[in-house]
Design a protein around this nucleic acid. Structure first.
Lengths: 105, 105
DNA sequence: CGGTAGTTACGACGTTCATCGTAATAGAAG
DNA sequence: CTTCTATTACGATGAACGTCGTAACTACCG
């Protein structure tokens, strides 16, 4: 039986909290990476910040309802709650993840 | 001939900037009000912050590409760039504006 | 020409928050 | 048990930012 860290139910998720969570560049990058990797730990994510900072951001993402974290030995891989989020806020995450970069003039 | 304040082109709009703009509660409220009202000035928006603060937020929204501001005498009514945003980030704004509030347990 | 109203520019203040370093915890492997 | 790895907890720090008050600016109206 798998164990998971506490996370909000779908209908408890607030759109403002989600927007705040996605507003930080590092967290947006984490979300993008998790979308591609499917699942990853804080250490495995290659980010230009310290691991303690990554852990901090993943916590915010989990409390905001964007990420699920599983307990696997001493590791805690996280996944993007993509399908759930899509049900709660249709089009939001999909739009963010498929957004093209701005024109760099 | 109508005059408008400077604003970014559609393909210059960055999704991260848009998310940051929407992350603030006051700005999200402004966006919601403009969506309902269609067009409004800083003074006409009834918000629990000073007008100078509202003006500040509207500027951020305009620079982020979320709002267009027209010059009309000494007034400067702003509109939500809803259709344009929908073309740039399909589903994003619609999802945010139609989001149901979280369950308050 | 004054007077009024709408908006913004400018500083200033206080809080939030992203980041870090270190220490503590927990599981896995030897 | 010891060691190593993964993660988190805990301050601390510095920067970003939301808010305000005031002043400056512009347009409209007597």
């Amino acid at each position: 039986m798998e164990t998971w860290l506490a996370q909000p139910d779908l209908d408890e998720i607030d759109v403002g909290t989600v927007l705040s969570a996605l507003a930080d560049p590092t967290r947006l990058q984490i979300v993008r990476l998790l979308d591609v990797l499917g699942e990853s730990t804080c250490t495995a994510l290659d980010l230009p910040v310290k691991v303690s900072t990554v852990s901090h951001h993943v916590n915010i993402l989990r409390h905001g309802g964007l990420v699920s974290t599983r307990l696997d030995g001493n590791a805690r891989p996280s996944r993007l709650r993509r399908e759930e989020l899509e049900r709660r806020f249709p089009g939001l995450l999909t739009s963010v993840l498929s957004a093209t970069p701005p024109r760099t003039t």
